[in-house]
Computed example of a mutant assay.
Amino acid sequence: MSPEHCARRSHVIMVEPALAQLAKLTASETHRLDRAIVAISVNPALGTEVPGTLLHDYTDEIDAVRGIYYVTALKTITMVTYVEA
């Protein structure tokens, strides 16, 4: 498929508190977190819907990462994602 016909991937922007927390992670934790963020940005329907809300819950058991996120009508994704201990 040519680039103009590929599915659009989300653009990820981190707010200042997230950047501060990211600086405290190890390289391995950062890599695990990045994989989850990319997975969600490529396929927002990946997680399971939280009953009674507009939220989705994504858990990667292998990398021990969890994300709670909301997809707007314009396909903007707002997420809180963290590395589980």
Rank of each mutant, 00 (worst) to 15 (best):
I62E: 07
G67Y: 10
E61T: 13
Y70I: 00
L33P: 02
Y70K: 08
H56S: 14
I40C: 09
A39S: 14
V80Y: 15
L46G: 07
A85M: 06
V83D: 01
T26Q: 02
P51F: 01
P3R: 00
V12S: 10
D60Q: 02
L46A: 07
A20M: 11
T78A: 04
L54I: 01
A39F: 07
R66M: 10
D60R: 06
Y82A: 09
S41I: 13
Q21V: 03
S2Y: 05
V65M: 02
S2N: 10
V71C: 09
S28M: 00
A39W: 02
T72L: 06
M14E: 12
R35V: 11
Y70R: 09
A7Y: 07
D34V: 14
A7M: 04
G47L: 03
V83L: 05
L19M: 14
E29A: 10
H5R: 10
I40Y: 05
T48C: 11
L46Q: 05
T59P: 00
S2P: 15
L55R: 09
A45C: 07
R8A: 12
H11M: 02
A7K: 09
E4K: 06
M1Y: 11
E84F: 08
T48A: 15
I77W: 15
A36E: 00
H5C: 12
Y69T: 02
A18T: 13
L55S: 03
I68H: 14
V50H: 11
H56F: 13
V12D: 01
R8C: 04
A18L: 04
A27G: 05
I37D: 00
N43I: 08
A45Q: 11
H11G: 09
T53W: 15
I62S: 07
A36T: 11
V42E: 06
I13N: 05
M1R: 03
I77V: 11
V65R: 00
D34L: 05
H56K: 14
A23N: 04
V38M: 08
V38E: 08
R66I: 01
M14A: 14
E16P: 14
R32Q: 08
S41N: 09
Y58S: 03
S10D: 03
T76K: 12
A27I: 02
A64G: 07
A73L: 13
A39L: 01
H31V: 03
M1I: 07
R35F: 10
A39P: 08
A64V: 12
A45R: 14
I77R: 10
A36C: 10
H31A: 08
A39D: 10
Y82S: 10
I37K: 02
P17N: 07
D57G: 03
H31M: 01
L33G: 02
M14H: 05
A27S: 12
P17Y: 15
M14Q: 09
T26P: 02
L55A: 11
Q21A: 08
P44Y: 14
L33Y: 00
H5P: 03
L25C: 13
T76R: 11
V65G: 01
T53Y: 15
